[in-house]
Nucleic acid binder design. Structure first.
Length: 294
DNA sequence: CACTTGACCTGTCCGC
DNA sequence: TGCGGACAGGTCAAGT
């Protein structure tokens, strides 16, 4: 469910709450949601302390003092909810359902991580997401991480790099290329649509027909929408509940995503919803004219 | 190899 | 109200 800005928001929210905490136990009600062997879990997870919480692409990485890390991917419908045992602290972020504020565990709870002072619930309606324990120094051996593209917001990632990586997908449409995690990490359906709108590019445009300069504009646009989202508390939807239980923002900044039938803020025409790369796709047909289509 | 499609799951919404 | 089908902020395997 969350893309880079949402995962980054979750990371920032959990960091002050769980760093230094001791993990007592972890249990799972759906094997695929937490596929590790029991012996490995007991040895490297039970009794460990959390030393850091990082993010790579859309994956959250919780480092432990045992040389292992908990990797968490929320996929489409994942949530992370923290509840202090004494009720003093609450944190919730992810797919917007009742679970964010309701009693836990509930029917969507897949993994429960018990800490000394509180509990982390990993809820996931569709069961696509996962929590995985893995040696910290071997994370990059996992195929997904080995192939994962650069972080788009890191300053050492240049437009030249971006263009070079996109050119490997020169014969496909630009939306599919943006969603390809091996090109650049962390872009999902929302920010692909928003970035393409900002660069005035139609999502069906074949990469090979786009100039280097326009692709550089696309990176600038992508960075701009992601940075804005993180700055807004990361939330593009009703996905965040802070320590006092206060809810976060809605998709208020989006210019095209889920705005089909509404007015384009730039030209006044109606936003359309179409299908590109097998995904629901939002465009302004006037600001993003179709040039070359696959 | 590059690219597209179906599978993994459940819940919700929309039309009949 | 019930039912079928489409669809959902993601990735992987298998197909062409």
């Amino acid at each position: 469910m969350p893309e880079l800005p949402e995962v980054e928001t979750i990371r920032r929210g959990l960091d002050p709450i769980i760093i230094g905490s001791k993990i007592l136990s972890v249990s799972s009600s759906w094997p695929k949601s937490f596929p590790n062997a029991a012996s490995e879990v007991k040895r490297f997870l039970y009794g460990s302390h959390i030393t850091a919480i990082r993010r790579r692409g859309k994956v959250l990485i919780i480092d432990l003092n045992t040389g292992y890390s908990l990797l968490i991917h929320l996929k489409m419908t994942g949530q992370l909810v923290y509840r202090a045992l004494d009720g003093s602290e609450r944190f919730a972020a992810g797919h917007p359902t009742k679970s964010l504020v309701g009693n836990l565990p509930d029917a969507s709870t897949r993994v429960v991580i018990r800490l000394e002072k509180g509990t982390i619930y990993f809820n996931d309606q569709r069961k696509f997401g996962w929590v995985r324990l893995f040696p910290t120094n071997r994370i990059n051996d996992i195929d997904f991480f080995a192939k994962l593209g650069p972080e788009p917001l890191e300053s050492n990632f240049t437009a030249t790099d971006f263009v070079k990586r996109l050119r490997r997908r020169n014969n496909t449409n630009v939306k599919a290329a943006l969603l390809d995690q091996t090109v650049v990490a962390g872009v999902g359906n929302i920010y692909a649509d928003e970035a393409l709108y900002g660069a005035r590019l139609h999502p069906s445009t074949i990469v090979g027909s786009i100039s280097d300069a326009t692709l550089a504009d696309l990176l600038a646009s992508l960075r701009s929408v992601m940075e804005l989202s993180i700055q807004k508390g990361g939330s593009t939807d009703k996905t965040y509940v802070d320590a006092s239980g206060k809810k976060g923002s809605y998709l208020s900044f989006a210019k095209v995503f889920r705005r089909e039938g509404k007015t384009c803020m730039a030209c006044g025409n109606s936003i359309e919803k179409i299908r590109v790369a097998g995904r629901g796709t939002h465009v302004c047909p006037v600001c993003q004219p179709e040039i070359s289509k696959k």
